[in-house]
């Protein structure tokens, strides 16, 4: 596991966006070779999306040959409701980039047969050749997607009832009225994310510090579903200083000492070639 510690939210977002950009560019996607990306919603990834949009507008990054799979969607919330994850993805990301509609996949929380919809989604991911890079955020209770505490760590895409604290936390998006918050959601399983060839988790803010500690320094537990990625062969956690507050000094120092190595991962090709020139 890599743990990348940046100064603040903006730095973390920028770093994450550069990482995603480089992964796509290195993959060199084309008509016969799509890059498949798993995507989260919520406040944490917004900054990363903004940066990715910038990269796209500057001309250095295209999503024409990128397929995306979103992690989750509320059940029963109209697709065009401003708080639906469809609306989020459209407004915060898709409408600003050149992704093709047929390549952007989001679970349909209004499907007639929800179980079938989940099966279909797993099948679609498989058809796409699996996910190259799954990006996620976490809740303060360490949940990844809507895999609330107690979720099976080998779970697949399915319908989940939301934990009471998730509903309370989300009430702010529904006029502060708990009764308006959807109580269930469709979500990819922990196992679905584990299958991705690489997993990137963004964790920012002091309120997520305990979850980061549980994810990194404690054992694998279904009560902190994000901890499952300790067993992923290629997982990268990107956090800000605030999120490290519950970590041991030793842990933080170790990973900060690796920053020079980590930063090479996000250099632009221009920076890389400049460095190579210097070495010569």
């Amino acid at each position: 596991m890599r743990l990348v510690i940046l100064d603040d939210y903006d730095e973390a977002s920028h770093w994450a966006a550069k990482y995603v950009r480089n992964r796509i560019l290195e993959f060199n996607p084309g008509p016969d070779k799509y890059f498949t990306l798993g995507l989260p919603t919520g406040g944490t990834p917004e900054g990363m999306y903004r940066k990715l949009i910038e990269f796209h507008k500057e001309g250095g990054l295209s999503f024409q040959y990128v397929k995306t799979f979103n992690m989750d969607e509320y059940v029963g919330l109209p697709r065009d409701h401003p708080e639906s994850y469809h609306s989020f993805m459209w407004n915060k990301f898709f409408k600003h980039i050149d992704i093709l509609p047929e390549n952007a996949h989001i679970l349909d929380g209004n499907a007639e047969d929800l179980d079938k919809e989940c099966e279909r989604y797993e099948e679609e991911i498989k058809q796409a050749g699996g996910v190259e890079l799954f990006i996620g955020g976490i809740g303060p209770d360490g949940h990844i997607a809507f895999n609330e505490p107690g979720s099976s760590l080998v779970s697949r895409t399915r319908i989940k009832s939301l934990a009471h604290d998730t509903i309370i936390a989300n009430a702010r998006f529904f006029d502060g009225d708990i009764s308006k918050v959807p109580t269930s959601a469709l979500t990819v399983g922990v196992g679905t994310v584990m299958d991705a060839r690489e997993v990137m988790i963004i964790i920012t803010g002091a309120h997520k510090a305990f979850a980061l500690y549980k994810a990194v320094e404690e054992g694998v537990s279904h009560m902190w579903t994000v901890s499952a990625f300790q067993q992923h062969p290629k997982a990268i956690f990107i956090c800000d200083e605030d999120a490290t507050l519950e970590l041991r000094v030793k842990t933080v120092k170790y990973f900060k000492g690796l920053m020079e190595v980590h930063d090479k991962l996000v250099q632009s090709s221009h920076e890389q070639s400049a460095k190579r020139q210097k070495l010569k």
Binding site: R79, D80, H86, S87, W90, F94, L100, P101, A104, I106
Partner: peptide, 12 residues
């Protein structure tokens, strides 16, 4: 409505 064009009709 471009959002429903995108998600429902999958058009551009």
């Amino acid at each position: 409505n471009p959002e429903s064009l995108f998600f429902v009709e999958k058009g551009y």
